[in-house]
Design a protein around this nucleic acid. Sequence first.
DNA 1: TTAAGCCATTCAATCGGTTGATTTGATTTA
DNA 2: TAAATCAAATCAACCGATTGAATGGCTTAA
Lengths: 382, 382
Amino acid sequence: MRRSSAPTLNDVAREAGVSAMTVSVVVNGTGSNTRVSEDTRRRIHAAATRLCYRPNAYARGLSRRRMDTIGVVAVVDGNEVNLYFLEILNGVLEAAAERGQNTIVFSVKGWQPEHLNVTQFCDGRADGMIFIAPNLTPEFAEALQQRHLPFVTIHHGSELPNTVNFDVENERGAYTMVRHLIDQGHRRILYLSGDADGYDVRQRLAGYRRAVEEAGLPFDESLVFPGSYSSNSGRQRMTQILAQNLFGPFPTAIFCGNDATALGVMEVLTENGIRVPEDVSLAGFDDTLTAQIITPQLTTMRQPFRHMGRRSVEVLISQINASRGDSPANDFQRLEQEEGAPAGSAYPVQKTPDIDVFEVELIIRGSVGRPPLHPFIPTSGK
Amino acid sequence: MRRSSAPTLNDVAREAGVSAMTVSVVVNGTGSNTRVSEDTRRRIHAAATRLCYRPNAYARGLSRRRMDTIGVVAVVDGNEVNLYFLEILNGVLEAAAERGQNTIVFSVKGWQPEHLNVTQFCDGRADGMIFIAPNLTPEFAEALQQRHLPFVTIHHGSELPNTVNFDVENERGAYTMVRHLIDQGHRRILYLSGDADGYDVRQRLAGYRRAVEEAGLPFDESLVFPGSYSSNSGRQRMTQILAQNLFGPFPTAIFCGNDATALGVMEVLTENGIRVPEDVSLAGFDDTLTAQIITPQLTTMRQPFRHMGRRSVEVLISQINASRGDSPANDFQRLEQEEGAPAGSAYPVQKTPDIDVFEVELIIRGSVGRPPLHPFIPTSGK
DNA sequence: TTAAGCCATTCAATCGGTTGATTTGATTTA
DNA sequence: TAAATCAAATCAACCGATTGAATGGCTTAA
């Protein structure tokens, strides 16, 4: 019984009156110089078009031992969507498509190490992996390396041996923001930080501290509230802070470790009739899309998410290429992306990228102003 | 030269001192009853664990002729990210993972029909496709069907032959919202609609009209502004409206065809010192995450995005199963998802889903209030 | 004792391609 | 005219699995 679905190499061969191998050669442009006569080539192309032939990606990948596919690990985690994940993913999708690479999204429930079974990424589906904001153990990284699966990380929490990680200037970012707040006249700056054992969290805290101390202000630990980088966490902590009036005079500015937190804080402030920035200034970190949507718009540090996604693809691909010794691309891929790069040059092959720390940019919007003459006094919930 | 990377079936077989076929049988639990002796089984499992064996997904897919993978088409389109896409994708990822299905995201630059090359989805990578908010021509759908590639659409713009489409009650949604506005006392309701030739756009407009006419108000076409469903479009049109003062008395309420538009409108209103909802009420449609983030929070119609994503996976899978006659799942998949469903029951196989129109829900928040006593009078830009 | 039956395992073909080596036949060179 | 050269196409093995049919050893019934 003939298969009902897609036409195969053999169907095309039959249709064109040649053998399957010839078709393969034509389709892939292998040794395109003189191997196949112009006439045959035309016949085959005609047959392929007539049958709407498309090579089976998996069969091809199997024999070539390369899938031209990169994997991205997505966290499916409760209900809160990580906005920045989408922005990075966008960059990844774009860059991958430009290079004729496919993208496959692996979904993982939560980033707890126990959920991260190395082998689930090692089934040949992807030539390499991008882990976004993961919580990988060194053992995990080692296991991947042992399986010869190239990978890069974005926003990885700590340093991993022999691993390319893309991150931003966390310390300088936080420093710059706090410096900005201080320049505006703020002296008591609350800091809603992230999970205490995160790498970036520590870096940003360090930036906060440096800015404060550099300005000759005391570093007051009671102004720092660790939590998680989510709007929920921001909401909870802010509520608690207002209710319990945990410290002396109310701060004139609140710096949040990321935008999501700031959004949660903003909600609570608004609910309590505390105006931003008249009563208290608010700053975030990330510049996710929502930052410019809320009112007032959020002053924040911009992370070049899309760019990071793109860059991680580039580096990953060169890593993949380095781990074998060949060049990519074939007729079909080329055909489908005429636009874009000249496509003549091979990809740069470089072991280690020169850039893996991206600059952040201070985005000044309406949520930060000068401190009020008389700092806000919460009506204690007590 | 031995391959450096992943161990294969043969490696395991050698390690366990049996043939590859036996390993295959053990690994897949095929005819698990009595075919393989307990002892051999144990030896094989041991060997597999020792070698960290994981079956190559593609080789397996090739011989099985099923990849256990569903494809989702993502639009990589300029800079504006479709928030709702992520929300649907989340549901898809979740539901797919629960069923041991993988998800592969295809990226397409824009939804113009000319970008939609049918064959790009027909390379065997996915067993079926989910198209989100596509602009598919009937020819395209037909081509897919001809290639026997099961697919479903979400928010498809028009009716396609023999195609399952998931959508929401567009007409009733718009009707309900406008009704709500009228109930609040509004009489002049501006409607910022979407692209005129969209299906849902027409439906929502119909709902708007019905509500207006049912209330005995005249349907005034000069109050309807078509555009695109983006925040940019909302910004532009609102700016224009304010500048040109295009109609008589300023409306007391603005209904936007989707949340993104409403966000753009909100920005412009705020910039111009027009207060929401004191001066004008504002309503959206979608209930994306941002709706509850902005201040004031947006009154909107909730679409069950995640649920739609989940449901589309279910239906797609049953369509895939129907298009062959078999049952899915294997040892590895089962092993990796112990939690979740009892996994005992087969998937329901049904040709046509009974539900493909989802209910929307009126979410009342702060952006809608009673109309002002004296409607706002814009200071004409002229 | 022999045929039948059952277990446990292996054979061999297949999925849809790729690729280095090889065949075929025509043309050129010695 | 035989040998060497070269273009055009094919052979056959392989990628890593799956699967229906076949094998061999052993037990049980006739």
